[in-house]
Computed example of a mutant assay.
Amino acid sequence: MIHRSHSHLASPVAWLAKPYPEIVDIAENDGSVLIVPVGSLEQHGYHLPVATDTLLATAVAHAAAEDVHESLPVLVTPPIWSGCSPHHLPFGATISLETATLLEVLSDVAGRALENGFDALLFLNGHGGNMPVISSAVSDAGHEHPDREVLGLSYFHLARAVIDEVRESDPGGISHGGEFETSLMMHLYPELVDETQLEGTQRDEPYDLGRQDLFADGPLSVYRTFDEYSHSGAIGAPELATAEKGKRLFVHIETELSDLLSEIHTQNSTRK
């Protein structure tokens, strides 16, 4: 696996860099798959850029699609860069869409994209606050296009199998701008990580059934603005992040998503 350029303009799977006849030709191939990265524009503490979720979802999408593009028809759209992030608004520099607005955007993007002939569309999410909206968009777009397959996935869930081997933090150390995201950013975009400002607060959710961590998600939903958890905006242990951890996590996530894309292609190869 090779280290990709931070610019996706030269990527062989970039929708935004192709003329329209080539996009339509790829879509009309049997078992074609389109990936739509969905991120956010929200604060990530003192040390990470506000586009962290968008950058990571897009990087994962391109890496996995590039791995398989020679054996299956796949493209990646530009990311949807604003998500549902009202819990980050107290810190500033966050642009959040209303839930209904994001759902309408996702449904419209899926509808227009599928009209080009793609057999399957995968929303690849990078922000925890988007997850319920992604699920609704999958249902709405799937209902509107019963002859196509619509799927949704949060990329970070693909790291679950290896996270305990990689992490050093206790539960609460991987939440928002913590060990996990900071490690991935150190691997992919080290120039955007301010290592002099690695400051986070361990997540302390009072309800045992609530979310304790990105990988310890309880069944109880509760709304809190993130300034209730952290004065910096980062929740977790960014001081434990390393580029080596980020590389190991990224390679695993990339491989898992590549395998999923191949499976989606196989499942949809007889639709035309």
Rank of each mutant, 00 (worst) to 15 (best):
M1Q: 07
I2W: 08
H3Q: 13
R4N: 08
S5K: 14
H6W: 05
A10M: 08
S11M: 05
K18I: 05
P19C: 02
E22Y: 11
D30E: 15
D30M: 06
G31N: 04
V33N: 07
L34E: 00
E42L: 01
H44E: 11
Y46C: 04
L48F: 08
L48N: 11
P49N: 09
V50L: 01
A51N: 02
L56F: 05
A57D: 06
H62V: 07
V68Y: 06
E70R: 13
S71A: 11
P73M: 10
P73F: 12
G83W: 05
G83N: 12
G83F: 04
G83A: 01
C84H: 14
P86G: 06
P86E: 10
H87E: 15
H88Y: 06
H88P: 02
F91W: 11
T94P: 01
T94E: 03
A100Y: 10
T101N: 09
L103N: 12
E104G: 09
V105M: 13
S107C: 10
D108L: 12
V109Y: 12
A110L: 05
A110S: 14
G111I: 03
D119A: 15
A120I: 04
L121W: 07
N130T: 10
M131S: 08
P132Y: 05
D140G: 01
A141I: 11
G142F: 10
H145E: 00
P146N: 10
V150W: 04
G152H: 07
G152V: 05
L158Y: 04
V162L: 12
D164S: 12
E165D: 15
R167W: 03
E168I: 02
S169Q: 00
P171V: 13
P171E: 11
G172T: 04
G172K: 07
G173F: 02
G178Q: 02
E179Y: 01
E181Y: 02
S183D: 02
M185H: 13
L188Y: 08
L188I: 09
L192G: 02
V193A: 13
D194F: 05
T196E: 15
Q197A: 15
Q197G: 00
E199N: 12
T201Y: 07
D204H: 00
D204S: 00
E205H: 14
P206M: 04
Y207F: 12
D208K: 12
L209Q: 10
R211F: 00
R211W: 12
F215T: 02
A216Y: 10
S221P: 04
V222F: 11
Y223I: 03
R224V: 04
H231D: 13
G233N: 08
A237S: 14
E239A: 14
E239R: 08
E244P: 02
V251H: 03
V251F: 00
V251C: 01
I253Y: 01
E254D: 09
T255R: 13
L261R: 02
H265L: 06
T266F: 03
Q267M: 11
Q267T: 10
Q267W: 08
N268A: 05
S269A: 13
S269C: 13
T270C: 02
